[in-house]
Design a protein around this nucleic acid. Sequence first.
DNA 1: CGTCTGGATATTGGATACAATCTTGCCAGC
DNA 2: GCTGGCAAGATTGTATCCAATATCCAGACG
Lengths: 217, 217
Amino acid sequence: MTFVRPRTAQEAVLSELRRMLVTGELAPGEPLRQEALAETLGVSRVPVREALKVLEGEGAVVHEPHKGYVVAELSVDDLVEVYRLRELLEAEAIRVAVPRLAATDLQALVAAAADVDAAGRSGDVTGMTEANRRFHFLLFDAAGMPRLSRTLRQLWDATDVYRSVYFSGVTNRQRVKHEHHDLLVALRAGDTEAAVRAQHAHRDNSVTAVTAALRRA
Amino acid sequence: MTFVRPRTAQEAVLSELRRMLVTGELAPGEPLRQEALAETLGVSRVPVREALKVLEGEGAVVHEPHKGYVVAELSVDDLVEVYRLRELLEAEAIRVAVPRLAATDLQALVAAAADVDAAGRSGDVTGMTEANRRFHFLLFDAAGMPRLSRTLRQLWDATDVYRSVYFSGVTNRQRVKHEHHDLLVALRAGDTEAAVRAQHAHRDNSVTAVTAALRRA
DNA sequence: CGTCTGGATATTGGATACAATCTTGCCAGC
DNA sequence: GCTGGCAAGATTGTATCCAATATCCAGACG
């Protein structure tokens, strides 16, 4: 049982706010009233504020003194920028990670990819984004570069809101499955550059789909 | 006069804490007692805690629930990693920025480089690190990629503590002057790749010196 | 003699109360 | 009718107070 209740209220608030952001329960541009959030979550304003400070640091919300916090709005330019930075940093992570991949890492990757599929088949969008993230960061973390992982997490966080949109489409789900498979094949073969290319293609399809969704909105 | 008093106490606390971290007044590994900081700065613990949350997000301090905040300790591995990420991201920033540089940008860059020299001659280490940072980010910001600038700032923040060490050496100060000059020449000529190379050499010398200092400590 | 348990103390986490700032809408003056 | 300012309400920012948790040390027990 790895079922640890958060040791502090701020941690609980933080993960709940993250969930609400990812699911769109809190929509971009929406002002965040501290008192209301506190009451909803059954805590006082203090832990809410500290959680919001963390989210501000991640760029998920923006803060104006004496005016309050607002859910960040991502422009198309922002999105393109985030994906360009991901391109640079993920290539580095994969190049370092692939030669270091152990058999257990590969097993974990295969399992995570299977989880993505399973969640996809049952239409569980949240579970799918979670498993997808786990899959990719298993690979990135294998590079053994904590600062890089951390930076990549920030970039992923910034676009998490739109990732769920992506996964809700059936054709996208099919494509993701194949792309993960391609990546796994490259990893198993120890072919670093093929892995980099696979990740690039995967990300490219994602940015195209999400950009389209964003323009419609 | 761009001398704006912070609109909130947390902002004041944050910048003061940053200063204390950069100057080494708060040394790596040192525990940060909230009550003591609050009293020193003449505020209550609440704004101190929110400022610490921001610094935690930047990796400047680490936090353990119910144990408190501690000034982050940077290992040699960390340092190497930070510089590798800077290499990737700064190259991107420069490649995008150089073709977009306006005459006014160049003027500002020249002025900032002069500020670095001036501070160096008067032995003002703090002023030198400040001007140096201004110089480099004038260039990076010119890329018009806010997310990239933001990420680079985080990476610079992480090693700020050690940058002062670097600037306190006379030979390093001389070298920095020449390297800034080289970079400016490349920028004026609009030679993007030369600028990337100059920045690379500049950063390389810095990491070597700081790593040496870190190993001694 | 070492280890574990229980309680005293210090420090952090959270709740409540108060102050400062912003927003909204109304009214006077032009 | 429009503009500017003023007052009331709402919301955030800060201080203070209380609760929860960790640390440390003394003493009991094996």
